[in-house]
Write a protein that binds this DNA or RNA. Structure first.
Length: 442
RNA sequence: GCCCCCAUCGUUCAGUGGCCUAGGACACCUGCCUUUCACGCAGGCAACACGGGUUCGAAUCCCGUUGGGGGUGCCA
């Protein structure tokens, strides 16, 4: 979700400014890279409507990064190091230095030769400051002294993302880097590497506020629903999702939140992005989604519901759903909620909640209503209008409102679709049985 | 521990020294509409974390405190 939001802001800015939106797959961690991840990324972007103008995979370009690293070694800006991670950590602990163990520069001048178990480290400056003017955060600076000599090429020869990014930003002429705030502290490293590669003007950086959960912590795969694909499966519309995401950390000046992408593109500016983290509020997403759903043409709505309608248990016949769909469309916030409105039509009605039963069936009215309807059930024409006339007629004779007792008896709930259209889809005997069962309980 | 960052209603966005008795949206509550619910409409509840400055004047600028977050990998 966080990456999708970053991609969205990149895209909005690129489209707003008429720039070029580059999709760069940063798959330098060969252990974790899978084809499935890649298709998940491109699939999500396509789903959200974020089209890109150029596409690269860093795993196709390892040789370029390696030569850049070699050149830095030759220039004395980087060096080989054969310390094992254990050794590095042990020395750090001995120093009582940092919690996780910063590298101490042990191999800086040892002239280690390349080989098995040897990494390339960048020689960070001991003095000075590395900083940049972040579009959203303003001036951000790091003392070079706190930057350890970090690894730029692993012992297996695969370059790390810092070098890859520094090289690619330069090579691809990247002008703007828009990403999550969790990447701020890697920025000085990339900046230093860029300088070492002879890069002059750095790109413009914009570090977006994080999207957080109710605990105010960065969304995490373990604890939170972060998969955009899962939201798609549950019946969220991509337009609604993109629109909602656009209001996290940014918002149109005029306060009009729900609006077409084209307008968002027109209004969006990185300079207006907030600094404070934003909570991912599913309730508000639901509202956006409901608005988009109600605005859909009916046939598109029916089509969007189809997977959920077909998967329902018991299944809902397509024609039945189509005929009742207009009523469902007004009430649903997600497509996966659609079958729930028709469960009592295709299967047994749910057992009424005790408190609903008490509230609805109290007094002399309900039994009289049920008796009255039951008495005339054989003679009524089996169509919505006639059923409505029957139920309301009984109520008028008795001087009470008659819908609720009938509704609860037949549907098991106090709330739901307009009663008589779906009721006409049930057969006479089923309705009789349910009314009698309810009457018997009074 | 060290580094970096953040701080307006429960949530989100607005507000960039006076127009703020702080506005919109979501959520919540009330009423209207409707013989259900939902939609719609009308209202309501509800915030500038705290303490110092600067200034004629501060939600807006500065400092500190408190609180929260991110990072600290041969992950990105």
């Amino acid at each position: 979700m966080g990456s999708a939001r970053s991609a969205l802001f990149n895209w909005l800015y690129a489209r707003h400014t008429g720039g070029t939106f580059v999709l760069r797959i940063e798959d330098t961690d060969t252990e974790r890279t899978t084809e499935a991840h890649l298709t998940a990324i491109t699939g999500t972007m396509r789903w959200l409507g974020l089209d890109w103008d150029e596409e690269y995979r860093q795993s196709d370009r390892f040789d370029l990064y390696r030569s850049a690293a070699d050149k830095m070694v030759a220039d004395g800006l980087a060096y080989y190091c054969n310390c094992t991670p254990e050794e590095v950590k042990a020395r750090a602990e001995a120093r009582g230095d940092s919690a996780h163990g910063g590298y101490d520069g042990h191999c800086r001048d040892r002239n280690v030769a390349p080989g098995e178990g040897v990494v390339v480290r960048f020689r960070t400056p001991d003095e000075g400051v590395t900083g940049w003017d972040d579009i959203v955060r303003g001036r951000v600076e790091f003392d070079n002294a706190v930057l350890e000599d970090f690894v730029i090429v692993r012992s297996n020869g695969v370059p790390m993302f810092h070098v890859a990014n520094a090289f690619d930003d330069l090579d691809m002429g990247i002008t703007h880097v828009v990403r999550g705030e969790d990447l701020v502290n890697t920025t000085p490293r990339v900046l230093l590497l860029r300088q070492a590669m002879g890069g002059a003007e750095p790109p413009v950086y914009a570090h977006l506020p994080l999207i957080v959960n109710e605990q105010r912590k960065k969304l995490s795969k373990r604890r939170d629903d972060v998969s955009v694909g899962d939201y798609a499966d549950r019946g969220y519309l991509p337009q609604a999702m993109a629109n909602y995401l656009a209001t996290l950390g940014w918002g149109p000046k005029d306060g009009e939140e729900i609006r077409p992408m084209a307008e968002l593109v027109e209004l969006f500016d990185l300079a207006d992005v907030n600094k404070a983290p934003a909570f991912f509020d599913v309730k508000k997403l639901d509202h956006f989604n409901a608005e988009y759903i109600r605005a859909m043409p009916l046939d598109e709505f029916v089509e969007a519901c189809r997977p959920h309608v077909e998967a329902a248990d018991p299944p809902i016949p397509a024609e039945l759903f189509a005929s009742l769909a207009p009523f469902v469309q007004e009430r649903v916030r997600r497509f996966d909620e659609a079958p729930g409105f028709l469960d009592w039509v295709v299967g047994d009605a749910p057992e009424p909640q005790p408190k609903d039963w008490k509230k609805t069936m109290k007094g002399d009215g309900p039994p009289a209503v049920l008796d009255g309807v039951l008495a005339k059930l054989d003679d009524v024409a089996w169509e919505p209008e006639a059923l409505e006339a029957l139920v309301f007629g009984v109520g008028e004779e008795l001087g009470v409102k008659s819908q609720l007792p009938v509704r609860l008896a037949v549907t098991g709930r106090r709330a739901g679709l307009p009663l008589f259209e779906p009721l006409a889809e049930l057969d006479r005997e089923t309705v009789r049985a349910r009314l009698q069962a309810a009457r018997a309980r009074l």
